[in-house]
């Protein structure tokens, strides 16, 4: 009950946020929602099913390039690109999952395999001139005053609401997943794969499902990214630091929890923005300062709150997970 009240208040604030927020605050909030969504998607694989992916930038990148490339070359908007992005990323996730799980690759080795595929793709995209190569892919920037949801063209507030809707849907979807057979099976696999298999769980099939769902969800974040920023560079979007940015949120917020990715993204981005502002005010504008700070926050959280902020906070608030 208490959880529901708190959730309603949060939702109410988020829905009315653009009416009183300035453009800067709105862009920060959109970014938070973006990472909350991507973190939620990653959480399905690692937090629920226990498969550590360090290459989720792959799905963001492929999703972004699929939608942007389609728009760039054929003029078909986001409504079409999203399906192409989801399809491609599901196939990609399935291929990686199939190779890894069939060959019995797990843990650190699996993580390294995901990095390898992301890096492989990053360098590969540098050589696809058709998609701009290392010089980047730019799609036409349009400043519209209205909302064109079908083509994902419109005001910053529209992008904010799109991301908010995605986050809410992802939250509900993950909530339902956790309560379903899949949720139970994934958590069993995460906790002890051998015991899970002895209880009749086809671990290969369920792990595959986790990877495919996670990659499909992540690709949607990529589509959003493409039409929000209007430019894509392999060096940025596929880079391992992008993968790490995605997973920091859920890790700081609480792996395997539903609120963890949201809380983590908010904490991370607000703090880093605050720090950047603070340093700018002091005149210390060196490249890298923000990332040092990221590293320190991460270090403190993994050392002292190994399960993340949310489980500790949830206990304080007197609400369940």
């Amino acid at each position: 009950m208490r959880a529901k009240i708190l959730l309603s208040i949060l939702l109410l604030v988020l829905v009315f946020f653009p009416t009183f927020a300035g453009p800067y605050a709105l862009s920060v909030a959109t970014l938070i929602l973006f990472f909350a969504y991507a973190g939620q998607a990653w959480n399905v694989m690692m937090g629920f099913a226990g498969q550590l992916s360090l290459g989720h930038s792959l799905y963001v990148g492929v999703g972004a390039y699929a939608a942007a490339g389609l728009y760039f070359h054929t003029g078909l908007g986001a409504w079409a690109g999203i399906w192409l992005a989801i399809l491609l990323c599901m196939l990609l996730g399935a291929a990686i999952g199939f190779l890894a799980f069939r060959f019995g690759i797990s843990g650190v080795y699996f993580a390294l395999l995901t990095i390898a595929f992301a890096e492989f793709t990053r360098i590969g995209f540098d050589h696809i001139q058709w998609l701009g190569g290392p010089g980047g892919l730019f799609i036409k920037v349009e400043h519209r005053t209205g909302w064109d949801l079908v083509n994902l063209r419109g005001t910053p507030a529209m992008f904010y609401y799109v991301m908010l809707a995605l986050c809410a849907l992802a939250f509900i979807f993950c909530f339902l997943l956790l309560k379903s057979k899949a949720g139970y099976y994934w958590q069993a696999i995460r906790e002890n794969e051998e015991a899970a298999q002895a209880l009749g769980i086809n671990t290969f099939r369920w792990k595959m499902l986790a990877v495919v769902i996670s990659s499909a969800m992540t690709s949607v974040a990529g589509v959003f990214y493409a039409f929000y920023y209007n430019n894509l560079f392999p060096e940025q979007i596929f880079h391992i630091s992008r993968s790490i940015e995605i997973i920091l949120g859920p890790i700081i917020g609480g792996i395997g929890t539903l609120f963890g990715p949201i809380l983590g993204a908010a904490v991370l981005i607000l703090l880093s923005d605050g720090i950047t502002e603070g340093l700018a005010a002091l005149g210390w504008e060196f490249p890298g300062v923000k990332q040092v700070f990221y590293g320190l926050v991460l270090l403190v959280v993994v050392m002292f709150l190994p399960r993340g902020i949310w489980p500790a906070l949830a206990r304080r608030l007197g609400v369940g997970k």
Binding site: K181, Y184, Q187, R190, G200
Partner: peptide, 27 residues
């Protein structure tokens, strides 16, 4: 298993439910 392998992070009930879901129709 000789060396017990509980799903340590799950509740006792959830542990058993993982087994029960093999043949039961609903959660």
């Amino acid at each position: 298993f000789q060396i017990v392998k509980p799903f340590a992070g799950l509740s006792v009930l959830d542990n058993v439910m993982v087994g029960a879901l093999l043949r039961e129709q609903s959660v």
